[in-house]
Every structure is written in structure tokens, then in C-alpha cells.
């Protein structure tokens, strides 16, 4: 554990809390992509099945349980409790275009051809692109509420902080995991355009609005 990894995890935690609070306080999930949330739930389920086979630390276990539980809680709020506020006609990204290549890639490019390892690899690749339906939704409607922007900023920062953690681990432990690193870089790059808009608009008190 180093400061970058901890900051990354805290940023990830914060993103989830912001999202849940936004939905709960406003009693609405307007502007949030249910498809991205479904992909995140699939990501955490596939990755954290190792809860039952592999003990790392109490910290890891608590975080894994939290990520799995909150991802399903989000889906429950979006698709059941506040279903009437879900903006489904703007949430039209075809997730099979992500799931199919990610599945094939996981079967071909992995550390070991075993059940748990392929699930882990699948989750790493899927997480990298899982935000695309959300970003697609923002670009389709041309805007995002400030709170949604803060959520996206915290979620995007998390993998960026992990990249610093991997650099740190490479120099201090000689540890590196190429699959996680490359997927993490792709994941972070997908947020670059959003980061730019966040700094130039949202932080100056303006709404995130894309030029027509």
C-alpha cells in the first residue's frame, strides 16, 4: 500500500458515494447511464469472486464487499426504486460492442488460462471501457449536472492515481502487471476530454455543456 494506491481507492469510494447520494437526495437518476452501472456491477462481480478463494487483507475484503454491494444498490435504485426518472431514451450505447471484444481479449490475452484468472482479466478490460455508455450519454444530451461531473471526475481520477501507484511499485518492489497497466492507461485516456471540460467549465462554476 502506498499513498497513490490509497488516494486512488479513496477517490473510487468517493465517486460511488457521490453517485448514491445524488440519486438518493434528488430522488432521481436523471443523466446517469444505467448501462454503465450494469457494466460496473459485472466488473466487480467478475473481479471480486476471489473474495472466497484469496485473502489479501481486511482492507481489501471490506473494499471489495463495498464495491460489489454499492454497484447492485445503484442498479436497484436506477431500475426499480427510481425507475421513472431513468433517462433510458438517451442511454442507448450498444454494450455488446464492448462485451464481445472484451470477452475475446480476455480469453486471448491473460496471465493464465484458468477460470478465475480469465474472469479477472475480463473485469480489468471491461472496467477500462465501462464508462463509455455514460460519456456517450453526456455527449448525446450535450450536458451534465455538476454533481454528475464531480462523480465522473472522482471516478476518472481513481485509475489515474493507480497509474502513479504502478510506477511507484515498479521502482520500489519491481512489481508490475502489464494487463492492469495498459487497461488502466486506456481507461484514464478515455476521461481526458472530460477532464479538460471539468477544469475549464465545472470548476469555474459553469455547467458542463458541450458546444452544439
Amino acid at each position: 500500500m502506498n499513498v497513490f494506491r490509497l488516494a486512488g481507492d479513496m477517490s473510487h469510494l468517493l465517486a460511488i458515494i457521490i453517485l448514491l447520494l445524488k440519486i438518493w437526495k434528488t430522488r432521481s437518476c436523471a443523466g446517469i447511464s444505467g448501462r454503465s452501472q450494469l457494466l460496473f456491477a459485472l466488473t466487480y462481480t467478475a473481479r471480486y469472486l476471489d473474495l472466497v478463494t484469496n485473502w489479501v487483507s481486511l482492507y481489501n475484503t471490506v473494499m471489495k464487499v463495498f464495491f460489489i454491494a454499492t454497484s447492485y444498490a445503484t442498479i436497484y435504485l436506477m431500475y426499480l426504486k427510481f425507475k421513472a426518472t431513468y433517462d433510458s431514451n438517451h442511454d442507448t450505447f450498444r454494450v455488446e460492442f464492448l462485451l464481445l471484444p472484451v470477452t475475446i481479449l480476455a480469453l486471448v490475452l491473460n496471465h493464465e488460462f484458468s477460470f478465475m484468472e480469465i474472469l479477472w482479466t475480463f473485469s480489468i478490460y471491461l472496467e477500462a471501457v465501462a464508462i463509455l455508455p455514460q460519456l456517450f450519454m453526456v455527449s448525446k444530451t450535450g450536458e451534465a449536472e455538476s454533481i454528475t461531473s464531480h462523480y465522473l471526475f472522482a471516478l476518472g481520477s481513481y485509475r489515474l492515481l493507480y497509474i502513479f501507484n504502478w510506477i511507484w511499485r515498479y521502482y520500489t518492489e519491481e512489481y508490475y502487471d502489464l494487463i492492469a497497466i495498459i487497461a488502466g492507461v486506456v481507461q484514464t485516456v478515455l476521461y481526458c476530454d472530460f477532464f479538460y471540460l471539468y477544469f475549464t467549465k465545472v470548476l469555474k462554476g459553469k455547467k458542463l455543456q458541450l458546444p452544439a
Binding site: 473494499m63 493464465e112 477460470f115 484468472e117
Partner: peptide, 10 residues
């Protein structure tokens, strides 16, 4: 055998 690779990150 499930896997021999150990992942200690989240």
C-alpha cells in the same frame, strides 16, 4: 485449480 496468479489490488 482456479488460478495461481495473486492479485493484491482492487
Amino acid at each position: 485449480r482456479f488460478t495461481s496468479v495473486l492479485h493484491d489490488e482492487l
